[in-house]
Computed example of a mutant assay.
Amino acid sequence: MSLPHESYLIGLIGDGVTPSLTPPMHEREGEARELLYLYRPIDLLTLGLPAQSVGDLLRAARLLGFNGLNITHPCKQLVLEHLDEIDDDAARLGAVNTVVIRPDGTTVGHNTDWSGFLHAFRSGLPGAELGRVVQLGAGGAGSAVAYALLTAGVRHLSIVDVDDARAADRAAELASLFPDASVEGRTTAELASLLEAADGVVHCTPVGMAAHPGAPFDTSLLDARQWVADIVYRPIETQLVRDARAAGCRVLDGGRMAVGQAVDAFRIFTGIEPDAERMRAHFLELVESEAALAEAGAL
């Protein structure tokens, strides 16, 4: 076996990122590709730092020889002003979650939230009908997912959020970027009728997470002809995923997007195409181990 030909030092900046599954996913893939690949969380909560310190942390990473950083909540917008360049998609979304630090010290921002979902959608739901799609959630993750759906070719996208104004604003922003599609913000009161006419449903709210159990809507409204995508991945088997499968729907679990983000970031950092299925298998191992530990601790 040949020796690793390169080394990479990568970090993850955000609140509460110490338990993130992204570092081990990257490191395992780096090992498989015979790279010296070290990925460390830089947890603002642990360090007692405010989100506004992201610029200082970026400068420190550059001085310390980091090759790149992933950026997560609450710094995806705050980091923009500290970058030398921002790619077109990240600029349109107004958010960066992946920063490359070039050898000359200049920085380039990317967004793999949208591309990660797009990769997950195309690989996990090939041939999905794109006529009418309902999306629940218009926050940061929802913006990236909606951008991906419209890039994939969704012709009519209805965005529903508990904050009607946020849904309307997000829809207007996206409509200006995708003039050939119909994008509209709708209210939760209209959800039942929207679901009845939908070809697909995408869920982008915290409902279904371990701390927020349950389903985001009455899943008896689902029909077997529809596809359903969830972006929640802790747990992988959310109530929405279980109910949608039981209804006969084609389903995309939230782990697909999480892996898609990591796949794209690994490629951006290294210039090497990772094995997406291998990373997916490792991710599922990590989730299963995490769930087993949590269950053991509850006994």
Rank of each mutant, 00 (worst) to 15 (best):
A168K: 14
D199V: 10
S143Y: 03
V99G: 05
R225T: 00
A215G: 00
A215F: 00
P274T: 00
G271F: 12
T106S: 12
E29T: 09
E6G: 12
G271C: 13
I10S: 10
L69Q: 02
P235L: 12
H5K: 15
A294G: 12
A215M: 01
R166I: 04
A152P: 01
R186Y: 05
S2Y: 11
M25F: 13
I71G: 07
E29H: 11
R40I: 10
G14F: 04
E277M: 04
D113F: 02
T72R: 01
A294P: 11
M257P: 01
A211G: 00
P4D: 08
G139C: 02
T238C: 08
L63T: 10
M279W: 05
T72W: 02
R62G: 09
F283L: 07
V133H: 03
A276S: 09
R28G: 04
L221K: 13
V207W: 04
G260L: 05
R225S: 13
D164N: 10
D223C: 08
D15Q: 11
E29P: 13
T270K: 07
L44Q: 09
N111Q: 13
H203C: 03
L83A: 03
N97D: 11
L222I: 01
F283H: 15
N70T: 06
A168R: 15
N97R: 08
E34N: 15
F117K: 02
R280Q: 11
L293W: 11
H5F: 13
E237D: 14
E295V: 14
R62E: 09
Y8F: 15
P74A: 00
L125D: 14
L293A: 15
G109V: 04
G116T: 10
H26G: 07
L130S: 11
V160E: 05
A168M: 05
A229H: 08
C204K: 10
T72N: 05
T205H: 10
A90Q: 10
T188Y: 14
P274D: 02
R278C: 04
R234C: 00
A258W: 09
A175W: 05
A291R: 15
A298Y: 10
G65Q: 02
Q52H: 12
A90R: 12
D218T: 11
G142M: 08
D199Q: 06
F283Q: 13
S20F: 11
D88L: 12
R278T: 03
T219F: 06
P274Y: 01
H5G: 15
N67D: 15
D104P: 06
V207K: 08
V228G: 02
R225F: 07
A128K: 07
Y233T: 09
L93E: 07
P235I: 03
G116C: 08
D89S: 14
E129L: 12
V259M: 04
I71C: 00
V201M: 01
E31Y: 15
G109Y: 04
H73C: 02
A291K: 15
L12T: 11
R155V: 03
A197E: 15
